[in-house]
């Protein structure tokens, strides 16, 4: 009997090993959100990012001087300011009677370089060279001088991981600026889409899309992109909108982290409402 088992195991050892390894992989996959796994991951990518940072120093040797970076930072700041003012302009036009509706505080930016990228059609992410020590926290939005790039998903002492818009696990509440209609922006592996927008809203190609007031992940009024095309579903009741992001996410190298965590902003707003 034991001979039979030995022979059986020996004959199918590759399959046994495959099953064992698959089971271990699946077990780990299901535990990705456990704090202990997160800690191990943070330690590992944080340690390895030091090596990537070193490589990035050499690949970035042809970069221009620091004044270029300062100008980019200024550009990002102005982009956010312009968008905020544009939003206020629309609100002023629609609600003239009301005053001081929006938050007038300024966003602080942390400049960061992309030191490595996980290039994937489904799950795009970057590692940035700024971390906890620099004031980066999980949930902070990441922008380029043109618009939203992603959101911080993991932070270590000196480095952080950004989930980009080209990541199917990132769904954000977005609004079409002119008509103020909200929807969920997601990545379908090929394009950024907002589904199920009622056709009663007159939405045109070329209109701006920004983060929504309803977003629990991101602060409102960060420019996301522009409507590239729209499609009506079979019954003609709903639209699917395709959004072209302002930021060139694929070739992003220098980015900015907005030092704002949405929950704090919501708390602040709630406190204002109670006054």
């Amino acid at each position: 009997m034991s001979n039979f088992f030995r022979r059986f195991i020996s004959q199918f050892k590759e399959y046994f090993l495959l099953v064992i390894l698959i089971v271990i992989s699946l077990a780990l996959l299901s535990r990705n959100d456990k704090p202990e796994i997160k800690r191990i991951r943070a330690f590992a990518f944080g340690s390895f990012a030091v090596v990537n940072n070193f490589i990035n120093y050499f690949t970035g040797i042809f970069k221009t001087d620091s004044s270029y970076d300062q100008l980019k930072e200024e550009n990002a700041r102005l982009m956010l300011e312009i968008n905020r003012l544009r939003k206020q302009g629309i609100e002023n036009r629609n609600l003239r009677a009301m005053l001081s509706i929006t938050d007038t505080s300024q966003y602080n930016l942390i400049a960061a370089d992309v030191i490595s990228k996980l290039v994937n059609k489904i799950r795009g992410s970057f590692i940035l060279n700024k971390g906890f020590k620099n004031g980066v926290r999980v949930g902070m939005p990441v922008v380029s001088p043109d618009g939203l790039v992603g959101i911080i998903s993991d932070v270590t002492e000196n480095f952080s991981v950004t989930k980009t818009l080209y990541n199917s696990s990132l769904n954000i509440a977005a609004t079409v600026q002119n008509v103020n209609v909200d929807g969920v922006l997601s990545w379908n592996g090929k394009e950024l889409i907002i589904k199920n927008i009622p056709t009663t809203y007159e939405i045109n190609v070329g209109e701006r899309v920004e983060t929504s007031d309803f977003s629990t992940l991101l602060p409102p009024n960060i420019p996301v992109g522009v409507i590239d095309k729209k499609e009506s579903l079979a019954l003609g009741l709903l639209h699917t909108i395709y959004v072209k992001p302002y930021a060139d996410i694929r070739s992003a190298s220098s980015l900015f982290i907005l030092t704002i965590v949405p929950s704090k902003q919501i708390n602040h707003l709630e406190m204002n409402l109670m006054k």
Binding site: L21, I22, L26, S30, A44, S125, I127, V161
Partner: peptide
């Protein structure tokens, strides 16, 4: 998976298969 900041287990499974 650990050093790339990706989903832990995804590359393990795909490389093994």
């Amino acid at each position: 998976d650990l050093i790339s900041g990706g989903l832990l287990g995804a590359s393990m499974l795909s490389f093994t298969i």
